[in-house]
Amino acid sequence: MRYAGTAHVVGANIDTDAIIPARFLVTTDEARLGANCMEGLEAGWVARVRPGDIMVAGPNFGCGSSREHAPIAIKGAGIPVVVAHSFARIFYRNGFNMGLVLIEVGDGYAELGDGSRIEVDTGAGVVRNLDSGAEVRCQPVPPFMREILDAGGLVGYVRRRLAGEVR
């Protein structure tokens, strides 16, 4: 899959309370959570996002609680993919399970400046900065993780598996 959009850069150790503060956890609705995405980092942060934009983060993105609301909020904000130096373990699982694409690029994230146009090619395992021309390598998303994402997340994936639609 290819994704292209404007990069919105956030820092290191962004925790799940920054992504979606606990006071918004009264719902699991994607759109409602999305409207408050990153509200714990900066009030009104989400206003800058256009559908398809890409979040770029430093090390240990998504640390803190195991709330599945965090990746849902990012998806709900219209961001289909997060490119980070690295992700916290539980967030990494929850992200894919909720249908959010997560790409780890290590130190390469520094090539992806705020506001630059970037392209993510999950099949080829590369992230490009279309403004500067810089290319950053990453692990391609394995085929069956792709299936989880295609099903919109783990719940949808298991439904398909049980219905015999995928193996």
Partner: peptide
Amino acid sequence: GMGSTDIAAAMALGETWFK
């Protein structure tokens, strides 16, 4: 240890994924 959706999937399918 894992979250509830992961555990539900493992209960249903008998498999899971790891990094």
